[in-house]
Design a protein around this nucleic acid. Sequence first.
DNA 1: ATGACGAGTCCGACTCGA
Length: 259
Amino acid sequence: MKIASFNINGIKARHPALCDWLDEAQPDVALLQEIKSVDEGFPRELFEDRGYNVETHGQKGFNGVAILSKLPLEDVTRGLPGDDTDEQARWIEATVVGDRAVRVCGLYLPNGNPAPGPKYDYKLAWMARMKTRAAELLTSEEPVVLAGDYNVIPQPEDAARPEAWTEDALFLPQTRAAFREILSLGYTEAFRARTRGPGHYTFWDYQAGAWNRNHGIRIDHLLLSPQAADLLTDCQIDKDVRGREKPSDHVPIWVDLDA
DNA sequence: ATGACGAGTCCGACTCGA
């Protein structure tokens, strides 16, 4: 079961590039972030025609997450539990029924800049809620995948120029500590389970020639419960997507599970 | 250096992102 995460930065602007990548990468499941669309505005036929089931959790103008799955989806839920007043569409869950049932969560973690400030407070509060949900999911003792745009640079080696990010909400010590707290519940970061060392990125800013200079950061992650980690056979970043026509500023990252 | 990004919203200029 190939499960991918991709922050597409707007479905209206990105559906051609997204379809090209789907046709070539053939993921069984694609967890999308920043669809920037309401549910009714999402071009679901484009994906249904390719054999995908489509579940969206959209909102007007920004944010928004979606699940595309060639396998049946069950028990779909929308929104991160823990704050009924939170209206931002950043979390969707479903159970993918393959040879094994896998619970997948697609997430778009808040950016948090500028820090300090209310946006950073929201980020940290959201991460605390996510930790609670991540802990609950572990009690199922089923394979769980938490995949998405975490807006977290875990380590200095995950940025081409870490010195440029020291004051940034993506790299502040509190942000990285909150990310480690979720990992410490018992999750495995899929990419780092298989690849060590610097130079691996999932985001390059549109500005200042970041792509041409390879000034990237690694902020899109897949976290695996122990039962999912036992099934891991591969994890790759589709870096070349960033160099194509009208790209997102993020690229896809995916795992292959023996499920 | 007069610049050096892009998407969405509602129509020129704002917000948002990372």
